[in-house]
Computed example of a mutant assay.
Amino acid sequence: MGGVQSRQPALVGDIVELSPLQPEHSAALLSAAADGELWNLKATVVPGPDAIDDYIANALAGRQAGTVMPYAIVLRATGLICGSTRFWKIDRANRKLEIGHTWLGSSVQRSGVNTEAKYLLLIQAFEVMNCVRVQFTTDELNDASRAAILRIGAKQEGIVRNERIMPDGRKRNSVRFSIIDSEWPDVKAMLRQKMRR
């Protein structure tokens, strides 16, 4: 356990703590996903009751392999888990990774939780892990997610066609965004200002 924690520290902000995902988080994650029945969304994959065990097992297997750092998003005021996010596609040789698999219960969307969670992840990526590139990918059809990624200062790079096959069999086109190391100081300043507001 200690080894996992040292490789994947908790990230603590003012309103959220990103806590390394554990098997015992499954009931709390399901409860967060039930806030808006997020597993019914077509443009994103959120675990429902049938999928939660595989969801956590896959995340933990990725952590074991060194390519994924999965987190539960915990509201500090209440200790309740309200969603999940992760670093994945971690490529240490090229100092790049992707932030993704992010979802939040309906009641905390547009509340500042996402901005602070992304801020904590980006500090870890650029200032601790020394990344030169952090990328984000979302469904071409997911307008809310696309807008949220642009709001945190990422630049759209393009559309990747038939990038993945969704659970319902749809061939998904994905939009790719990134922040690179030279942009990070300006993005950081903008996010800090946003969080102060």
Rank of each mutant, 00 (worst) to 15 (best):
E37N: 15
A57Y: 01
P23A: 13
G66P: 07
V46H: 01
N162R: 15
G79D: 12
G48M: 00
A43C: 10
V12W: 06
I81D: 06
N58T: 14
G48H: 00
C131W: 03
C131K: 02
E98M: 06
P70Y: 00
T137Y: 09
V68H: 07
Q22P: 05
R110G: 08
V45T: 07
G62T: 02
G105Y: 03
L30V: 06
K155I: 02
L38V: 03
L18S: 03
T67L: 07
G100M: 00
D186M: 12
G153K: 03
T137C: 11
R151H: 14
L29N: 12
S111D: 01
A93L: 11
S31F: 13
A28K: 13
L120P: 02
I73V: 15
T102K: 02
L41A: 10
V175L: 11
N142M: 00
G153I: 00
I149F: 11
G153T: 01
I159G: 06
D186V: 14
F177C: 05
A34M: 10
D139I: 05
P70L: 01
A125W: 03
S19N: 10
I56Y: 00
L121I: 00
G83D: 02
R192T: 13
K96R: 15
M1I: 09
Q8R: 14
S106K: 14
R170L: 05
T44V: 14
R196E: 11
V128H: 14
E140F: 15
L191N: 09
R92T: 13
Q193N: 13
S145C: 01
Q22H: 10
A43R: 09
L150M: 11
K171L: 15
M190D: 10
L41Y: 13
A27Q: 15
I165C: 10
D54R: 04
D143N: 11
Q8N: 12
V134Y: 03
S19F: 08
A59W: 00
I149A: 11
E127C: 07
A93P: 09
A57S: 06
L60H: 01
R196H: 09
K118V: 05
T44A: 12
R192Q: 13
E37T: 13
T85R: 04
P167T: 04
G48F: 02
